[in-house]
């Protein structure tokens, strides 16, 4: 099949950028979107041109590296699918496809389609963990956890940290990412002691990084390759409010 690409090219963080047109001909419909870009890059290099830079690694939808805005939609047209798992058979032959990086104040562009998502690491560092230094653990079966609770925690824990939620949000909010972690850890008994502090610190870090606020557009859950629900945001808001209005000690002893 043949497609026409309009790709964002930008030589460096402070260089000006713009859309450049490429013809991608003779592409197998069974190729993934990234494999199509590989083919385009091989041809660019053969012609002595600089290939298109894009982030990718596992190519099986789990590492969260790939991050493309395809025709204005984060990760492209297929619901619950990261760019690397999107195949060319999802596009009509002859179609024009625009490819852009994630756009967010908190995700500066490094080159072409590559952005920095270090802000996400700093949100996790602010409180997205359970303090359990190596060696301090009790037996894994000592605490019973109801199956449906662990299943709900797992639904949120599946977040791959790709940033599609931020790219899709009209406000550029990182609420779904942050809420997924707060939900995962806050649903588990091990996560209770730090629950209030965690919510407060993570939400505050999210603001410091320059992400926008959440006004419940719901675009994030539509773009999420792991189909994480905005119910998690409700939970985050509740945990945050409780922690913000109550003295820390009271929050620490509270459980749901």
């Amino acid at each position: 099949m043949n497609v026409t690409l309009q790709v964002w090219r930008q030589a460096g963080p402070s260089a000006p950028g713009g859309m450049v047109r490429y013809e991608a001909n003779d592409i197998s419909p069974d190729a993934s979107f990234l494999e199509m870009l590989d083919v385009v890059n091989e041809r660019l290099m053969a012609a002595g041109e600089v290939p298109i830079a894009f982030d990718h690694d596992c190519r099986e939808g789990i590492c969260g590296s790939c991050s493309l805005m395809i025709n204005g939609v984060a990760h492209g047209p297929n619901k619950g699918t990261a760019t690397c798992q999107l195949h060319m058979r999802s596009f009509a032959d002859g179609r024009e496809i625009s490819v852009e990086p994630w756009r967010s104040r908190a995700f500066p562009i490094l080159r072409d389609l590559v952005v920095s998502r270090e802000a996400f690491d700093r949100i996790i560092a602010a409180g997205g963990y359970i303090s359990a230094p190596t060696g301090s653990a009790i037996d894994g079966n000592a605490t019973l956890i109801a199956k449906d609770e662990v299943d709900t925690a797992m639904d949120a824990a599946q977040c791959i940290g790709c940033g599609a939620c931020v790219a899709a949000c009209p406000n550029g909010s990182a609420s779904l990412f942050t809420a997924a972690k707060i939900t995962h850890l806050g649903l588990l008994p091990q996560g209770q002691p730090e629950r209030g502090l965690r919510a407060r610190r993570m939400v505050e870090q999210m603001d410091i990084e320059g992400f926008g606020g959440c006004t419940l557009y719901g675009e994030c859950q539509e773009a999420c390759p792991k189909l994480i629900s905005i119910d998690t945001i409700t939970r985050m808001n509740r945990d945050y409010l409780r922690a913000a209005v109550a003295p820390v000690r009271a929050v620490v002893s509270e459980s749901d």
């Binding site: 359990a132 894994g140 109801a146 199956k147």
Partner: peptide
């Protein structure tokens, strides 16, 4: 044990 303590959501039986 270590991973459970960190909050790794390992699969559970109905009894927890």
């Amino acid at each position: 044990d270590q991973c459970v303590a960190q909050g790794v959501p390992f699969a559970r039986e109905y009894g927890g």
